[in-house]
Nucleic acid binder design. Structure first.
Lengths: 190, 190
DNA sequence: GAACATACGGAACAGTTGTTCCGGATGTCA
DNA sequence: TGACATCCGGAACAACTGTTCCGTATGTTC
């Protein structure tokens, strides 16, 4: 119902993207416990400026997380079109974990809309969920993933991998070793 | 060097265990973000009383976490004596995860003495680490666990499982499904 | 039961946090 | 350039946090 919003003033536009960038950096570093003051400082901006653009901390965080999530969901679609189903599935799993290592809040989204109020933060979450589900189903049809694997346990394992990744600074090698073992468990034929 | 400390006054002794019990309960519920006030209230005790017994929040938390850790390490020894190596290994893995679901800080210990200052909290951590290592080596000798599995990735996978367990209230069924898949990855012969 | 060390409770302090508010600066448009 | 809506900065507020302090109460000892 709200018509076309008049374009932002130039400085407002500039500050908005500054805040977004700073928030992304600080969130990546501190996770969901990042403070508004830290973001304001990083952005070289006053506190009021942040609140002018994002009425609430949650609004700001959601803007970022939703964006990340959507981008990942797109990647999933690209992958499932380009590669063979098995490779696409495992590649995307890895992609999410790598992403989580650099974006602390990622894992919290995946644990799902559990008890934690901050967990149900991303509007893009359902998109990503369905993207994952598509990859899973296709990989199973192709025989690259065990038939008895279902979404709940897949998400649980994915979330676990992300949670570890966001806490430790894994070497690439360790990450690959751990994921390799996990992937062996996901494959059929034991 | 400090000689025998005179026994605590009766009420002091009573309050000390009250605090410990309350802290355990609150820590299990709120994790490492539990507040001293919450613990004091749960214990039916003043704030000063807590600080008399535990000079610092970290001291209190460490007392509990260290105790838990030691008990788990003992369990590991018992298991490795009683059961066959493979069963002992997987049983203990499961045991830790179940424990983590009820004791929020557990997982944070396992991620190791990383960046997080609160992670290096438990003095019993090395004990548990070596307990796990023993179980692993024995299970490998018995051929129940793949030979190329080493401690770093094992701890990573274990930590991941614990982190998920402490966040979601898993049904027992989901937990078993997820662990089942993970265990398949840990076994030899693919 | 008196005397004394010990321990208790909770107000008070210092540091966070998210959020609000408003005087003053700044971009925009005639 | 002038006039005005828009936007900015950061002090101030309220609600938290861990921690300190001290008047009071309580257990212990003779």
């Amino acid at each position: 119902m709200s018509g076309e919003a008049r374009p932002l003033r130039a400085d407002a536009q500039r500050n908005r993207t500054r805040v977004l960038e700073a928030a992304e950096a600080v969130l990546a570093r501190d996770g969901l416990s990042a403070s508004m003051r830290a973001i304001a400082q990083k952005a070289g901006v006053g506190l009021g400026t942040i609140y002018r653009h994002f009425p609430t901390q949650e609004d700001l965080y959601r803007a970022i997380v939703t964006d990340r999530t959507r981008r990942l969901a797109e990647e999933a679609h690209t992958l499932s079109a380009a590669e063979d189903p098995g490779a696409a599935f495992f590649a995307f799993f890895t992609r999410i974990v790598v992403n989580a290592a650099r974006n602390k809040p990622m894992a919290d989204i995946l644990v799902g809309s559990g008890v934690d109020p901050k967990a149900a933060m991303a509007e893009g979450a359902p998109d990503m969920r369905s993207a994952i589900e598509t990859l899973l189903v296709n990989a199973q049809k192709a025989g690259a993933v065990r038939q008895d694997l279902r979404m709940p346990e897949l998400l649980a394992l994915l979330a676990g991998a992300c949670l570890v990744a966001e806490r430790n600074q894994w070497s690439d090698e360790l990450r690959d070793r751990a994921l390799g073992i996990l992937f062996d468990g996901l494959r059929p034929n034991h």
